[in-house]
Write a protein that binds this DNA or RNA. Structure first.
Lengths: 201, 201
DNA sequence: GTCATAAACATACACTCTGCATGCATCTAA
DNA sequence: TTAGATGCATGCAGAGTGTATGTTTATGAC
């Protein structure tokens, strides 16, 4: 019986190796960015060789994409978990926003998902990743609030995009150390302003 | 008298070469991104060798930075030129936003300034570039509108950041072919909502 | 259990790219 | 006109990516 080579199934070996590589890659991507991280550096940190990396991922962007998918899934799960079952659309929207900001406070996440991700994978590919993990939450929330009369009947797609841009910027600024209270208050004011908007006749 | 080597001053030579290199680099950066553009490709397109490139720029990021500074300067100039002299703060804000979106409609500009720029140069370096070319316009406009009572007394820094994130996202979506009218209406609604906000007492 | 096959992983190689060092051509200034 | 500086080209060393090939470990039929 080998101590440093216990018999493991291939499925287990694969899962463990992928996790080791992704963990090592994540910390380097966060510290030095996608372009600043070399595949030798990743495998050194994981304690393996580049053969393992290129066996499990077709190229360097693939492991970056895998890391981002994991992050996006965790963010989506956090938002979903924070959804209050029977709340009105406005409270649901604010709860989702709060959960999003909390989830994005995990160190490195803003850089991965909001800075390096769009540049390295492209904006469309990144949207696809987020869509795969239930990013339609915000669009759904906006539409529900509009159906409810809480939000004005603006184009839902445009309104959702602008609101999400706002939340993403808030996440970035918060990760840069800006005061959370300022951003919470401002974001709420913007949403409140929309909900109280007197319709031009 | 040489036909293909007319006598030119060094200053002129430098200016022309820098412009040729930056033009070639810009089109490639727009088409393939910063990471996807090689220095051999840049100098091939410019019809020179890498010696010229590395004589005028210390490294690849330097020419990228130079291209972005030129773009940022043009955007800032366009916004400044559209500033109505005696308008009220709200109209000035909307005019500036409109000018910003028009300036960002120049092909490739959104990718350069909003996608590849932050990833390749870092968010702080990019902020510095924009600050050098009078990006304080928005912050000033917001503060003026707040002093005027048009915008509520929220933290100016946070409000400015969120509004600018909104405009940047609008510019990106418009360059992806989304309908301008939708975004214009939505952005105006958000600002209008803020200006009409009933203060919580 | 054993053996053929496939999967997991390591090693070696070819290619490209970046940045610098060196050398030639052109301009500047006395 | 000529010494020195500047503009630009050429050549080279180091690093990185992706692939081809080799070696080890697991799987499944018998």
């Amino acid at each position: 019986m080998q101590v440093d080579s216990p018999r493991r199934s291939n499925d287990l070996r694969t899962a463990e190796m992928r996790a080791r590589l992704m963990d090592a890659a994540r910390s380097l991507f966060v510290a030095h960015g996608f372009a600043g991280t070399s595949t030798p550096a990743i495998v050194d940190r994981a304690g393996v060789t580049r053969g393992a990396l290129y066996h499990h991922f077709p190229d360097k962007t693939a492991i970056f994409r895998a890391v981002l998918e994991r992050e996006a899934a965790e963010v989506a799960a956090a938002i979903l978990a924070a959804d209050p079952p029977g709340a009105n659309p406005l409270d649901a929207l604010l709860a989702g926003a709060s959960a999003y900001l909390a989830a994005m406070a995990v160190p490195g996440r803003t850089r991965l998902l909001l800075v390096d991700g769009p540049a390295a994978l492209g904006r469309v590919a990144l949207r696809q990743i987020e869509a795969q993990h239930g990013d339609a939450t915000l669009l759904g929330g906006v539409k529900a609030a509009q159906a409810d009369g809480t939000l004005p009947p603006l184009p839902a797609q445009a309104l959702t995009s602008l609101l999400s841009a706002m939340f993403e910027r808030a996440a970035l600024d918060l990760s840069d150390g800006h005061p959370p209270a300022d951003y919470l208050a401002t974001a709420k004011a913007i949403i409140l302003g929309l909900s109280q908007l007197r319709q031009p006749h």
